[in-house]
Simulated assay, not measured.
Amino acid sequence: MSKACPAHTDPARFIRSLRFNNIKGAAETIRENNALGAVCARVCPTERYCESACTRAKIDHPINIGGLQRFITDIEQEMGMQILKAGKPTGQKVAIIGAGPAGLQAATTLRQYGVAVTIFEEHPKAGGYLTYGIPEYRLPQEIVDYEVKRIIDLGAEIRCNIKVGKDISFDQLKADYDAVLVTVGNSKAKTLPMFEHNICTESAISFLARVKNGELHENELPDHVLVIGGGDVAMDVATTLKKLGVSNVTDVAYEEFNEFKASKNELAGTRKAGVTLIDGYVPTKVATNVVTFKHRKLDAELTIKADKIIYAVGQTSDLTGLEIDLQHSESQLWSAKYQTKDAKVFAAGDLVDGDQTVVFAVQKGKEAAKVIMNTLGGVNHD
Score class of each variant (00 low, 15 high):
Cys160Ala: 08
Gly127Ala: 11
Ile134Ala: 11
Gly100Ile: 03
Thr108Ser: 11
Lys190Ser: 10
Leu192Ser: 05
Gln77Leu: 09
Ile83Gln: 11
Thr109Ile: 08
Asn186Arg: 14
Gly127Val: 04
Leu110Pro: 02
Gly87Glu: 06
Lys174Gln: 13
Ala99Tyr: 10
Leu130Lys: 07
Gln105Gly: 01
Tyr113Ile: 00
Gly103Asn: 07
Ile143Asp: 08
Val144Arg: 05
Ile97Gly: 11
Val94Arg: 02
Pro193Glu: 12
Gln112Thr: 12
Gly155Thr: 06
Ile83Arg: 13
Gly98Cys: 06
Lys93Met: 02
Lys188Leu: 13
Pro135Thr: 03
Glu76Tyr: 02
Ala86His: 06
Gly98Arg: 10
Ile143Asn: 02
Pro101Tyr: 06
Arg111Val: 00
Gly100Asn: 10
Ala106Glu: 03
Pro135Met: 12
Pro193Leu: 10
Gly128Glu: 14
Val144Ile: 13
Ile96Trp: 12
Ile97Trp: 08
Pro101Trp: 04
Ile134Pro: 01
Ala175Met: 04
Ile75Tyr: 09
Thr191Ser: 15
Ile119Asn: 12
Ala189Trp: 05
Lys88Tyr: 01
Thr118Phe: 03
Leu173Met: 01
Val117Ile: 11
Glu122Cys: 13
Arg70Ala: 07
Ile96Thr: 11
Thr90Leu: 12
Ile96Asp: 04
Val182Pro: 02
Lys93His: 12
Glu147Gly: 11
Leu139Ile: 05
Pro135Leu: 05
Gly165Ala: 05
Leu181Ser: 03
Val115His: 10
Gly100Cys: 08
Glu142His: 13
Val184Leu: 04
Val180Ser: 04
Ala175Val: 01
Ile158His: 09
Gly98His: 02
Lys174Gly: 09
Ile168Phe: 09
Ala156Arg: 12
Ser169Ala: 05
Gly128Asn: 13
Val94Gln: 03
Asp153Asn: 15
Leu84Tyr: 00
Asp176Trp: 08
Ala189Ile: 02
Ile162Leu: 08
Gly133Ser: 09
Ala175Tyr: 04
Phe170Tyr: 13
Asp167His: 14
Ala156Gly: 10
Gly165Thr: 03
